[in-house]
Write a protein that binds this DNA or RNA. Structure first.
Lengths: 234, 234
DNA sequence: CTCTTAAGAATTGTCGACAATTATACTTAG
DNA sequence: CTAAGTATAATTGTCGACAATTCTTAAGAG
């Protein structure tokens, strides 16, 4: 259920394990977004020393799940509309480029594997009427494979190692299950086709449109909510 | 001389200060790229405890200047051709988007300020025949202003807070003073014009070409060096 | 009653020591 | 002489305590 970051290695040290637990807690919202973090309290809760906890906190900061200020302390990152839209803008830039690079650098085996995955997802999609699976793991799975396919370590680290933790957090906390499954599936197919054709320019364009479409979907929703609120106020 | 990251605040804690010193040492090459880092040794050298040093190391890892492995230790990041090219690809994606956002979000004051800056650089450039100043701080200054002009905190943090430390490191270590000053100046002018026209699409395109041109410049140099080496070997 | 100020409590930053893991060097068998 | 295994040394991970800073609370002045 909890899709793992494909770039990370097994957690060997206790700080690693606590980091993973905290990461999970923050992403799922068990630790409220924007809330203050008490080092003594958390250390006691996980039965570890503050040094070890701080090591874990440093890793959380690395993937932008918490923010630290000197002599003040740490807070769980806040989930705001602006932050969400900024995240989409950034994803559009990075994943668009990753997709272009994937078209240039993916091996034929990797491409074949992606095509198989999509075919399988097509079955799931038909079966479940595009509601649950495809939107969750299937979508993330697709994006991860494209990113890894770029064979660009810099891009991979930035997107998978940092950005996607935030993406998952927003998905959980804002409960984003947009009704774009069928459309997203078509878009994914076209992207794979462009990659398969080694058409980097088109691949980037399609991926950017794919992500921009999600962003605009959110923006519309927000605008709608706003309008509703205002009509209720009167 | 040492252009500061515009996003950071004053270093208050000793870990901050040591971080800055280490950052400087790594960027300038005083600590060899790829070399192993001994925690006891470094701690002794800076006359601090290992805990404090590790705090500083964590921050270095955040901007990708060192790499850590559990139970093994830290190494200064290695400077490779592949890494440099990957960095340019990533910059092209991120700064291109930042430039598009800058065209949308910059205030008229910010734009006016950039135009002034460029005019002043034009003078410096004429004076010094485009050799030293403009290529160093002037160029970085221009890029920073565009990035900040995006008003997108996510992009700003990623580029200024992380990527540019690596950029500076590569510049220092590979001694990159490419003969592109005049051309770069023209490109900068065109970018500002596009931003001033609020033409986001063109602004992004021009910024991407500007960065891609630098990358191709490097690629050509590498290819040339390679050819020379091979001719000497025979 | 409000604002300022000062003392106290709590939190974060730093330190040195111990435990666990990894690297090194030596011994020994083949 | 080479190679594997073991013992030793060195390094990293974790811990609890102390120092420095910030937050809280209460007292007092206006």
């Amino acid at each position: 259920m909890f899709l793992q970051n494909p770039t990370k290695q097994a957690a060997v040290t206790t700080a690693d394990k606590v980091f993973e637990q905290l990461q999970h807690a923050i992403v799922e919202g068990d630790m409220a977004a924007g809330s203050k973090i008490s080092e003594p309290e958390l250390a006691k809760h996980y039965k570890i020393s503050r040094s070890t906890l701080r090591e874990a906190l440093n890793r959380l900061e690395k993937c932008h799940l918490i923010e630290r200020k000197a002599n003040i302390g740490s807070r769980v990152v806040a989930c705001t509309i602006e932050g969400l839209l900024e995240l989409y803008i950034t994803r559009e830039a990075l994943e668009g480029m990753a997709c272009r690079q994937a078209a240039l650098n993916m091996t034929d085996e990797e491409i074949a594997h992606m095509k198989n995955m999509l075919t399988q997802h097509a079955g799931d999609k038909a079966l479940q009427d595009g509601v649950s699976y495809y939107q969750e793991e299937g979508d993330v799975d697709f994006h991860y494979k494209v990113i890894l396919g770029s064979h660009n370590q810099q891009l991979i680290n930035l997107i998978c190692g940092q950005l996607y933790h935030l993406v998952r957090m927003y998905r959980c906390q804002f409960g984003m299950h947009s009704p774009r499954a069928t459309r997203a599936f078509t878009e994914h197919s076209n992207i794979i086709q462009a990659i398969s054709d080694r058409d980097g320019e088109l691949a980037e364009l399609l991926m950017r449109r794919h992500i921009a479409a999600s962003r605009k979907n959110i923006e519309n929703k927000i605008a709608l909510q706003k309008a509703e609120q205002e009509s209720q106020e009167t």
